[in-house]
Design a protein around this nucleic acid. Structure first.
Lengths: 208, 208
DNA sequence: AGTTGGTTTAACCAAGTGGTTAAATATAAT
DNA sequence: ATTATATTTAACCACTTGGTTAAACCAACT
């Protein structure tokens, strides 16, 4: 019973992504995942023994999508300013097309910290290396006194927050889908500009 | 059966805050709220007919806490740069002591958009006025070409995101509670500096 | 003491919940 | 055709969920 090119197992995972992303762990129902995949509920259990398992599969998928590209860009040979520009424009467009992922991951970190820790260990993801790379480049290439970790968090904040805040911008500021799309498009240049301008400010301030 | 100074109804609301903030709407259990308040479950129903009602009460409380101070600061007579400094340092300290609130509100906007819309209408909260005030000051006082809405979102992002990302910083970067506390303390100065430096950059860039 | 009003409770219920099981079906190999 | 294997299903279960009900409690007032 192959539907198009995907196996049933893949179709279930895709359905689970949709449901978990929209409803969160507690809000998601195994029945809804099954319906979304067009299969019986117990088939979901057949492939992924229980709810925790399938959640973990979905989380790993989302997390690695975010992290892989991040590492790729920040480990490359580019100068730091190029990295920022490339990273932000890539992330803003990726996230605005997968706007549920960041909040899903943050909630996962709150709800299932143990599961996440185990996953990080399994994939031996080491953020220290990344931070060391950033630290080195900020000091030796840009000669800035700004704390690299704060800078890193600022970059993430400016890239990620507006995507998380999508319903805030729509519900509270009444942006339409088109307006939001344009807003996200603008951020690809606005955010790098903002960051690079800020860095310029540090040059002037600390070169004394 | 008055416990200290608070009424039973207030004690239930406080308990509901705790539970909803930690578990979200779907994860929260009426029984847990009752236990937390030290009362029987059906007493919770007696005061707040159903789960939606008590959730709404909790949401309104959190939302108004965030918004009141924001309006207060941005409507004051201060120059814009002072507003930024004051706003950020106030928000960072408020949020780091109520770190569950921003994510709670964002999730609420996703989960219960209709409820939230109704609430905003009831309290006739109008963000247009706030934006107009910011727009005016950015143009006429600072003579900057930066889009005021993007600037506003940037300010929110830099203030709010690090608080939301608390479990990310702790779980992934392994920060201890003390380190996180210091990190938040530092942000009270780092963030305004970063923003004001960025604005300085815009002055140089666009004064031609 | 009796009445009244708000407050608090135990016991209960229908509707889901995640999860199990054993049987049915399709697919392919012998 | 028969067997073996992987896939798919309906029926079921123990348990939890939000919510109801009717009775008990308790202070204040008559």
């Amino acid at each position: 019973m192959e539907n198009s090119t995907s196996t049933t197992e893949e179709r279930i995972l895709e359905a689970a992504k949709k449901v978990f992303h929209c409803k969160g762990f507690d809000g998601a129902r195994m029945q809804e995942i099954a319906d979304e995949a067009g299969v019986n509920k117990s088939l979901v259990h057949y492939y992924y023994r229980n709810k925790d398992n399938i959640f973990q599969a979905v989380f790993e998928d989302a997390f690695s999508k975010l992290i892989t590209k991040l590492n790729e860009i920040f480990y490359s040979d580019l100068d730091f300013k190029s990295k920022i520009t490339i990273f932000v424009s890539y992330y803003v467009s990726f996230l605005s097309e997968n706007s549920y992922i960041p909040l899903f991951i943050l909630n996962g970190l709150y709800e299932k910290p143990d599961m996440i820790k185990a996953m990080l260990k399994k994939k031996n993801f080491a953020p220290e290396k990344l931070m060391e790379q950033i630290r080195k480049q900020v000091k030796e290439e840009l000669h800035l006194e700004i704390d690299p970790f704060h800078l890193y968090i600022n970059i993430l904040a400016l890239s990620i927050f507006p995507v998380i805040a999508k319903p805030l911008i729509q519900t509270i500021f009444g942006y339409s889908n088109d307006q939001l799309k344009q807003f996200n498009e603008e951020r690809k240049t606005v955010v790098p500009d903002f960051i690079l301008n800020a860095l310029k400010g540090y040059e002037n301030e600390h070169r004394n």
